[in-house]
C-alpha cells in the first residue's frame, strides 16, 4: 500500500515536474524581490518570454522527432530584418508579416529538405543554415539596425487587448494550436511515432520523410512569427536579433520534460520551461545582478533541472 502511494506520488511529480520547478523558483523570486509579484512585472516576464516561447513551441516538434534545430535564431534574425525592410519601404504591415512568415517557412523547407530527403544529420544541416543566414542578415543590414515606424506593426509587439499584451495572446494561441495538433491529429501521432521508432513508423505506413520535413517547416514558420513579435516589440530590427535564442528555446523544451532522444513529451510544458528561464532573467535584473553573470545562473539552472529530472525518472523506474 505504502509502495503504491509512493509510486503514484512519483508519477504525479513526473507529470507536473516543470510546474513544480516553476513554483519553487517563483517562491524564491518572491522572497528575493518585493516587486516580483506585482501584476505589471508578471506581465513583463510573460512578454519577455514570448519570443523564446514561440520558438520553443516549434522546437518541441523538432525535438519530438529526435532532431534539433540550431538555425532558429538566424531565421528569426533574417526574417526580422527583411520584414522591417519591407515595412520601411512599403509601410504595409500585412506585407511585412507575410514576408517574415514566408522567409521562416522557406528556411524550414530548406532545413527539412537537407535533413529528411538528403539524410544530413539535423545538427549539421541547421548549424550550416545558422551561419549562412546570419551572414545574410549582415549583408542585408550592413550591420546597422532597421527602425520600425508603423504603428499597426508595433501593435503586434506592444499593444494590448482587454489589458492582455498581444504577444501573450499570440503565444497562448500558438501553444493551444500546437497542443491540438500534437494530441488530436494523425500528423501529431506521426511525429511521436517517428521520434519513438522511425523504422516502425515507416513500416506502419506513415510517410516518415514528410513528417520529419513538416516538423522543420513548422519550426521555421514559428521562427518567422517570433521575428515579427520581437521586431515589433523592440521597434527595430538588429543584425544581432535572435542570437543565442536557440539555446533558450532548447532549454525551455528540456525543462518542459521533452526527451532529447525523441518520442516522448508535450508542448504545453515547454511554455512553463520558457517561463522558468524568463523568471530567472527577471529576478536577476530586479536584484541588479551583473547582466553578464545571468548566463552563468541560467546555465546552472538548466543543468540542475535536468539532473533532478534524471533522478526523478530513475526513482520512478525503480518504483516499477
Amino acid at each position: 500500500m505504502k509502495q503504491e502511494t509512493k509510486k503514484r506520488l512519483i508519477n504525479q511529480i513526473n507529470i507536473y515536474r516543470s510546474v513544480l520547478i516553476l513554483l519553487v523558483i517563483c517562491i524564491f523570486a518572491a522572497f528575493l524581490s518585493e516587486s516580483f509579484l506585482s501584476v505589471s512585472n508578471l506581465f513583463n516576464v510573460f512578454k519577455q518570454v514570448t519570443v523564446a516561447g514561440i520558438i520553443g513551441c516549434g522546437m518541441t516538434f523538432v525535438i519530438l522527432t529526435g532532431g534539433i534545430d540550431l538555425s532558429v535564431g538566424s531565421i528569426l534574425g533574417f526574417a526580422g530584418v527583411v520584414a522591417s525592410g519591407v515595412l520601411a519601404s512599403t509601410g504595409n504591415t500585412f506585407l511585412a508579416v507575410l514576408t517574415a512568415v514566408a522567409i521562416g517557412i522557406t528556411c524550414g523547407i530548406v532545413n527539412g529538405f537537407f535533413i529528411s530527403q538528403c539524410g544530413i544529420p539535423p545538427f549539421i544541416a541547421t548549424l550550416g543554415m545558422m551561419t549562412l543566414l546570419r551572414g545574410c542578415v549582415l549583408v542585408y543590414t550592413k550591420g546597422s539596425p532597421i527602425p520600425v515606424k508603423v504603428d499597426s506593426y508595433k501593435f503586434i509587439g506592444k499593444g494590448t487587448v482587454l489589458g492582455v499584451p498581444v504577444p501573450v495572446i499570440i503565444l497562448i494561441a500558438l501553444f493551444l494550436l500546437a497542443h491540438y495538433i500534437l494530441t488530436q491529429t494523425s500528423f501529431g501521432r506521426s511525429i511521436y511515432a517517428f521520434g519513438g521508432n522511425r523504422e516502425a513508423a515507416r513500416l506502419s505506413g506513415i510517410s516518415v520523410k514528410k513528417t520529419e520535413w513538416m516538423a522543420y517547416i513548422i519550426n521555421g514558420f514559428l521562427s518567422g512569427i517570433a521575428a515579427v513579435v520581437l521586431t515589433a516589440r523592440l521597434g527595430s530590427a538588429q543584425s544581432t536579433s535572435g542570437q543565442g535564442i536557440e539555446m533558450d528555446a532548447i532549454a525551455a523544451v528540456i525543462l518542459g520534460g521533452t526527451s532529447l532522444s525523441g518520442g516522448t513529451g508535450f508542448v504545453l510544458p515547454t511554455v512553463v520551461g520558457a517561463m522558468i528561464m524568463g523568471i530567472i532573467d527577471n529576478i536577476l535584473t530586479l536584484m541588479n545582478v551583473n547582466p553578464h553573470a545571468t548566463n552563468i545562473v541560467k546555465g546552472a539552472v538548466v543543468l540542475i533541472a535536468v539532473l533532478v529530472d534524471k533522478k526523478v525518472k530513475d526513482l520512478s523506474a525503480k518504483a516499477e
Binding site: 511521436y192 511515432a193 521508432n197 516502425a200 506502419s204
Partner: peptide, 18 residues
C-alpha cells in the same frame, strides 16, 4: 521494426489506420 516501445498500446495499434 514492429513497435514504438515508448508509446502506448493504443497508439501502436492505431498507427497504420490513422
Amino acid at each position: 521494426e514492429g513497435l514504438v516501445l515508448l508509446r502506448s498500446i493504443k497508439e501502436n495499434i492505431s498507427m497504420s489506420s490513422l
